[in-house]
Design a protein around this nucleic acid. Structure first.
Length: 204
DNA sequence: GTCTCGATTGGCT
DNA sequence: GCCAATCGAGACA
């Protein structure tokens, strides 16, 4: 299967996030071992229209890190933890898609070596947890193409139907928290444990 | 230089 | 479920 090319990400990150849900993230270690997981939770950050990016004194310069050409890996640091993202839209516009959780498929033994946990689902059910489990080095990965041999995304075998996807507000932010830009696979035990306000879902 | 905040995590109750 | 740890980044003196 052909990895998703950078051109796929040259559009609205909300649409990108919806389509990437169900894709397979593949990490090939230097020794050739393959670690992979199904993407079961994603969020979109679209700074031109997103208060979560524009608000606050902390974001002005940092968000510009996202303004690289589309389809490149980048890392956002929050609470000293690295979060894996893919740049979206054309160069010069700060927009990205955040991978929040994976369902491990292959190389679980190596993931446990990178990130020993006592409860299985804690291995990759958080945006920084999956970075640790895959043994990713931000300094090495950041700025590389999303279809790089060492780390790439394989598209879902078939698009996920709407009734298999839950759309909610994003987690852990204040500004822009009412935007329904978080997508997760219905009933999947590997999604992150935090539950956002469901207010915006009350009306459907 | 110092203070404050945060797209998280993990330990404790 | 609650809350402390943690440290990079930006504002301000």
């Amino acid at each position: 299967m052909t990895p998703l090319p950078p051109a796929f990400f040259n559009r609205d990150p909300v649409r990108v996030a919806r389509k990437v849900l169900g894709a397979t993230l593949v990490r090939v270690l230097p020794g050739g071992e393959v670690l992979s997981g199904r993407v079961v939770e994603v969020e979109a950050y679209d700074c031109p229209r997103d208060p979560a990016c524009a608000a606050g004194r902390f974001h002005a310069a940092r968000t510009m890190d996202m303004a690289i050409p589309p389809g490149h890996w980048l890392f956002w640091t929050a609470h000293s933890h690295p979060l894996l993202q893919v740049s979206c839209r054309e160069e010069g516009i700060a927009a990205s898609m955040l991978i929040r959780a994976l369902e491990p498929l292959t190389g679980i033994g190596s993931m446990l070596t990178h990130r020993p946990v006592t409860r299985g689902r804690d291995l990759t059910n958080g945006p920084a947890k999956l970075v640790y489990a895959l043994g990713l080095n931000p300094a090495e990965i950041a700025g590389t193409r999303v279809d790089s041999p060492g780390l790439h995304l394989l598209p879902p075998a078939a698009p996920l139907p709407d009734d298999a996807v839950t759309v909610t507000a994003r987690i852990g932010i204040q500004a822009g928290k009412n935007l329904p830009w978080r997508f997760l696979v219905n009933g999947n035990p590997w999604v992150s444990p935090a539950v956002p306000s469901m207010d915006l879902l009350a009306g459907g």
